[in-house]
Simulated scan of single mutants.
Amino acid sequence: MIEIDVQVDLFHPADRVWHALTDRGLLARWFTEVEPMAGARHRLLLFTAGLPGFDAAVDAEVTDRREPELIALRCLEGGRRSRLACAVVPTAEGCRLSVREVLEHGSWSDEQRERREESYRQALTGRLPAILDWLAFRQVDLRRGEAGMTAEMPVTEGFGDEPVPAGRHRWPLLVAGLAAVVLVAGAVVWAVLPAEPEPAAGPGPTPSPTATTTASRTPKPTASAAPTRSTTSPTPRPSRTPSATPSRTPTSAAPSASAVAARYETVSTRLIGYTGEVVLDNAGGAAAKGWTVVVTLAEGGTITDVSGADWRQEGQVVTFTGPPVPAGRSRTFTFAVRDLDPITRAPEGCSLGDDPCAGL
């Protein structure tokens, strides 16, 4: 039995996550468009043909629906049958969303299965948290005192739902949304507070000219001393090098040719975090050994999900490890970070061994 299982911890209440799962308009924003099939109450058509790992649109039937805990679908796509289940479990900081798809008839190639799983993972760790952050603000009237100005998200009908009486779910959504706004607003105010230390910078300009003038004068003696050392140091080296160096150089140059280089990129951002990606490139002629990448997060940053590497976090330092990178190939891993500082959009540091990651 072939299956795909992806989990993500979300810092939002279960009812908000359920809303993003079952509302057609919201689902289209973070995963794919959905349309009810005419004449069939619990039948849906998911327009997944353009997504990685999907061959065609998915004909889905809702087989189980327990708000806000579980929704299960029986799916038919390109002659294959599978069961897809989305489970929401409350946690101390929000909830955990698990998406599990089990293939019952037909087959996926290894590449198709990996691309399909990655498609789910990118949606759950990147686009869904962004929609939930946006939804948390939209569910609260941020300008209640101004006539005609409201940011409240209307309660819409999700697929497979009976019409909900007006006002039935309004108070729970307002309370949950208000809590999220207070949390993020506090983080924003905290981020603005550093403006206070600027008066201390007032007396700073006075010593800075002297510091710059002395700094500009001191390099000159050291610069003059440096040439004399560079000219004298080469002379003893040629006398020693001809005998020993030629035999050692070819062997020492080979490992450097197969060294792995790392580059970092922030692939998505959210109100309370971001998703980073590290690509390891092996341009050498031999397979490199297992690698270790060390990422230093900003203070208070927490890893919530990792794909493509083993990891452990100790304070701000996160250590990622993985298998060898074949010669001429690349390996990629991504990690989602929760950070309440709205200015933080990347780690403070990233290195592969002693070499810093490019792009950071």
Rank of each mutant, 00 (worst) to 15 (best):
I2C: 03
D23F: 03
P219Y: 15
M149P: 00
L45E: 02
A215L: 09
I343T: 10
L51Y: 12
V294K: 13
D64G: 14
E77K: 02
E104T: 13
L174K: 08
L173T: 04
G148H: 09
E3D: 14
R217D: 13
D281L: 06
T218R: 10
A358Q: 15
G94S: 05
Y274V: 01
T332F: 08
A85N: 14
E117T: 12
T228N: 07
E101G: 00
R144Q: 11
A179T: 11
R237A: 10
G148R: 11
E69L: 09
T156I: 09
L103A: 00
M153T: 04
A85M: 15
E348G: 13
L46C: 03
S307K: 05
V260S: 07
V189T: 02
P347W: 05
R237K: 07
R100E: 04
V58L: 05
T22E: 02
L360W: 09
E69S: 14
A244N: 11
A223S: 06
A176H: 12
C357F: 04
V278G: 04
L174P: 00
M153Q: 07
L26F: 01
R338L: 02
D64L: 15
T344A: 09
D161F: 03
E93T: 12
F159C: 00
Q112K: 13
A123Y: 02
R81Y: 10
A201P: 06
A195Q: 05
H12Q: 01
A244S: 15
S351N: 04
Q7K: 13
L183M: 06
T48E: 04
L340S: 09
L45K: 06
P342F: 00
L340P: 01
V294W: 05
W311Y: 13
G328L: 05
Y120H: 14
Q122R: 15
P90S: 09
D161S: 03
T222F: 15
G94K: 03
P323I: 05
L297E: 02
H12I: 07
T213Q: 11
S330H: 15
L174V: 08
T249P: 05
T251R: 12
D5W: 08
D110A: 07
W291R: 08
Q7D: 07
L46Q: 02
A72I: 02
W190R: 10
P13F: 01
A215G: 07
M1P: 04
T269P: 00
T156F: 02
L174M: 11
E299N: 11
D5M: 02
T63L: 13
V155Q: 05
L142W: 00
E3A: 14
W291L: 07
T48F: 10
A179E: 05
E314N: 15
G126I: 00
W108L: 12
T269R: 14
A288P: 04
T292S: 09
L97Q: 03
G308N: 01
V279P: 03
T232F: 04
G158Y: 07
V164P: 00
L142R: 06
T32D: 02
P238L: 04
C357I: 09
S307D: 11
P246D: 10
A259L: 02
K289D: 12
E277T: 15
V295P: 00
E277N: 15
W190F: 07
P172L: 13
A288K: 07
E196K: 03
G94C: 06
A215C: 00
R65G: 04
D133T: 04
L26K: 01
L135C: 00
P221G: 11
G78I: 11
P255Y: 01
